[in-house]
Design a protein around this nucleic acid. Structure first.
Length: 231
DNA sequence: TCATTAAATTGTT
DNA sequence: AACAATTTAATGA
């Protein structure tokens, strides 16, 4: 594809490389388009490439053996995933799935390793990328201190946060059971929390999906509530 | 396009 | 955890 190089150019870190390095990246990188719901990489596969989300929305999910989801996170355009499995040369520890039609770049393993060896700016980019994910991970542990309603709200906000433009409502396909697993509460409790959030006008729930109306209020739900919610 | 059925998801206890 | 109600998806006329 000739449009491939244009997409790669859109990756923020490519500008950090020398022209010769950019040429090798463009030549080896493969751009693919996935329909909504497509599994891009399976858990257990050998990691052969570094994955970049150029357009759309991709989710990383870790599931239990019976197929129930345990946790996942959304990756918006501009996000890159899988460097952990490449650095450690091991199998993927999660599924990578397109939540909506998405364009994904694959930077081959050898190119990725070569960039790590040769480019300090590239190393810095990867470092920042990993640090952000660590911060997100640690931030989640704080959610456990919150009451269930606020905890559900925070996890939802985290999923919506990277991709929501102000003012525009956005729909995310997620079942209440999945959300329950994500927030560490029962499906019934997630259901109660969602209806409470709906009453507050923060979001609307529908079959298998949630529409966020007010991301800011969702983020800070239950923070300084002078309301009655106390148990 | 519509009716029927199965499967998934939700609401409630 | 269990149950009923609702929504969606699939199937065939």
């Amino acid at each position: 594809m000739s449009e491939a190089s244009n997409f790669v150019l859109a990756a923020s870190w490519i500008d950090l490389l020398t022209p010769e390095q950019q040429i090798r990246v463009r030549r080896s990188t493969v751009i693919e388009r996935f329909a909504a719901g497509t599994i891009i990489e399976r858990k257990g596969d050998w990691a052969r490439a570094w994955l970049g989300v150029l357009d759309g929305l991709v989710k990383i999910s870790v599931g239990s053996s019976d197929g129930r989801l345990v946790s996942f996170t959304g990756i918006p355009p501009g996000g890159w995933v899988g460097e952990g499995s490449l650095v450690k040369r091991e199998r993927r520890k999660y599924d990578v799935i397109a939540l909506r039609e998405s364009v994904v770049a694959r930077v081959p393993d050898d190119t990725f390793q070569w960039l790590l060896d040769i480019s300090i700016p590239f190393n810095r980019f990867v470092l920042v990328q990993m640090n952000e994910r660590l911060a997100q991970f640690i931030g989640r542990s704080e959610y456990r201190l919150l009451e269930p309603d606020a905890r559900v709200a925070r996890h939802l906000a985290e999923l919506f946060n990277p991709l929501l433009y102000p003012g525009t409502g956005l729909r995310l396909a997620i079942t209440q059971e999945e959300l329950g697993y994500l927030a560490g509460v029962s499906r019934q409790r997630a259901n109660r929390a969602l209806r409470k959030l709906e009453d507050a006008g923060v979001l609307t729930v529908s079959y298998g999906a949630i529409d966020v109306r007010d991301l800011e209020r969702l983020k800070h739900f239950g923070e300084t509530a002078p309301d009655d919610a106390q148990q």
